[in-house]
Design a binder for these strands. Structure first.
Length: 491
RNA sequence: GGUUCGUUGGCCGAGGGGUUAGGCACCGGUCUGCAAAACCGUUUACGGCGGUUCGAAUCCGCCACGAACCUCCA
């Protein structure tokens, strides 16, 4: 096996992945703020790190995958000045904040399950870790990198930067940031505009509030990840992932917080997935150009010419490398839909393939090429291209134009199972999961009758059976040796 | 303005000093009662200008265009 290498944003290059305490791997990924329906943008990090999770397990690692749920502290606008996103939504809909969280979290989980994203090992809520966050703030205060101001606590960025370096993940430096950050109105409790909140005193109308040594209030947004990753993965752990849009300030603040509180670097490998774009622009809430996953699944959106199944979405995302932007269009999605169906049909055909004693084709290095592609910073597009090459071989054998040996057939079967199902997480949606034998036999019966009337050149009856089944959504394919059929999708 | 990163054929998207990525679409063919599927073949590439090199889409420089981040965002 080759060496797994991953692109470390901190170093701006690929590095050999060597876990801290093999065979254990600690993985932390920034999860959603649950105040709205999950959209295509949410699918990208979920799927990217699902692939990493699956591949690390495939390589024999014992992975603890922590993906948090932000349900408090994430403010609507100006860092540290705006309203809490969850609280705002709750107010709008006249609900308890936790009702909002419950509602959208459920919808998030449902969408992730449809996309065949494995649940993480632990999914901690920020609101469920207030004591841990308070303790974390105390540590930062003790180390001298935070100060209290009118019941709120802020991180002293300037002091931290003198001793360490603030902004090293995103490549920013504090002087430039000071120049470009707009002047404060003078009313601020903060010493410097760059300082960020660790704890905020709640205003009277603020509904989400907890007791702390400083005030009744709520934790700053960046803090939850530092506190919860430390709790579940330790002061030092292997991989921290998230979207590129979180690089600054979120992840740079996390680094500063953890370093200030713990006196060391917490994260060894930082990984960031790129954005999904629409007409070259980031798909996002603020731009109002996002499409929810549910809308993709039911096709109910002005920009969609049709519905796209969860597996089509998953495959579409996997056909691009996770560090590249991926541009949405109906054309691109339809191409993915067709390609996926070709690949999955080849996969299904694999079961029926017969090996030959005199093989005309030899299979070499398929598994190795797939593994090398995954080892090269999770290059799923290359893995898929390898699988398509194999699919062509499968179809040739299926058509009787080529033949392969028993050994090669077993090898392809195993490689397909491992890479398509276990690692890429692609599952058949065509309804082959239907276990109703009577139903299957009924369709077989109809098609057998059709075979018989075809013998008598009764094309009218033959075409009628095919047409009516096709109208019902079945797909009928005549082969050299009998027929193949797939049921309507969604069964 | 700063930071980071892009610009590949009709579309999506890998690769990254010399050798076919792959998918989808298109066109032609094989197969088929017809169709679908499958297979075979063909076509269209590396933003511009310089430089390094025997050789650059790939390395370097400049320019143009675009994006993300610097405000909430996955």
């Amino acid at each position: 096996m080759s060496q797994l290498s991953l692109y470390n944003t901190l170093k701006r290059r690929k590095e050999a992945f060597l876990p801290l305490n093999p065979p254990h791997v600690g993985l932390y990924v920034c999860g959603p703020t649950v105040y709205g329906d999950p959209h295509l943008g949410h699918a990208r990090p979920a799927i990217t790190f699902d692939i990493l999770f699956r591949y690390l397990k495939h390589r024999g690692y014992k992975v603890r995958y922590v993906r948090n749920i932000t349900d408090v502290g994430h403010l609507v606008n100006d860092a540290d000045e705006g309203e809490d996103k969850i609280a705002q939504k709750a107010k709008l809909e006249a609900l308890e904040p936790m009702e909002v969280v419950q509602y959208y979290l459920l919808r998030y989980h449902r969408a992730m399950e449809a996309l065949n994203v494995l649940p993480p090992s632990i999914e901690p809520h920020a609101s469920g870790h207030i004591p841990e966050q308070i303790e974390f703030i105390q540590k930062i205060i003790e180390s001298g990198y935070a100060y209290e101001s009118q019941g709120s606590v802020y991180f002293d960025v300037e002091k931290y930067d003198r001793d360490h370096r603030y902004g090293k993940l995103s490549g920013r430096n504090i002087d430039e940031l000071l120049e470009t950050t707009r002047a404060l109105d003078g009313q601020s409790e903060k010493r410097r505009s760059l300082d960020f909140a660790l704890w905020k005193k709640a205003s009277p109308e603020h509904i989400m509030r907890w007791k702390s040594p400083w005030s009744i209030g709520f934790p700053g947004w960046h803090l939850e990840c530092s506190a919860m990753s430390t709790k579940y993965l330790g002061e030092e752990f292997d991989i921290h992932g998230g979207g590129m849009d979180l690089l600054f300030p979120h992840h740079d603040c996390e680094i500063a917080q953890s370093c200030a509180a713990l006196g060391k670097e917490s994260v060894r490998y930082w990984m960031h997935n790129n954005m999904i774009t629409i007409n070259g622009q980031k798909m996002g809430k603020s731009l109002g150009n996002f499409i929810t996953l549910e809308e993709f699944f039911n096709g109910n959106h002005a920009l969609l010419t049709q519905a796209y199944s969860p597996m089509t979405i998953r495959f579409f995302i996997l056909q691009a490398h996770y560090r590249s932007t991926l541009d949405f269009s109906n054309e691109a999605l339809m191409a993915s839909e067709r390609g996926l169906s070709r690949l999955m049909e080849a996969n299904a055909r694999l079961e029926k393939l017969k090996p030959a004693t005199q093989a005309s084709l030899k299979l070499e290095g398929l598994r190795q090429r797939c593994e090398e592609a995954m080892d090269d910073d999770l290059n799923t597009p290359i893995v898929i291209s390898q699988l398509f090459d194999a699919a062509r071989v499968i179809n040739l054998v299926h058509d009787g134009k080529e033949s392969i040996s028993e050994t090669d057939l077993q090898e392809i079967r195993e490689v397909f199972r491992i890479f398509i199902e276990d690692i890429l997480g692609l599952v058949s949606e065509s309804g082959s999961t239907t276990n109703n034998e009577a139903y299957k036999k009924a369709v077989d019966l109809l098609l057998n009758i059709r075979q018989e009337v075809k013998q008598n050149k009764d094309w009218a009856t033959s075409d009628r059976i095919r047409k009516e089944l096709t109208d019902l959504g079945f797909e009928i394919k005549d082969g050299k040796e009998g027929f193949e059929w797939t049921p309507p999708s969604g069964i």
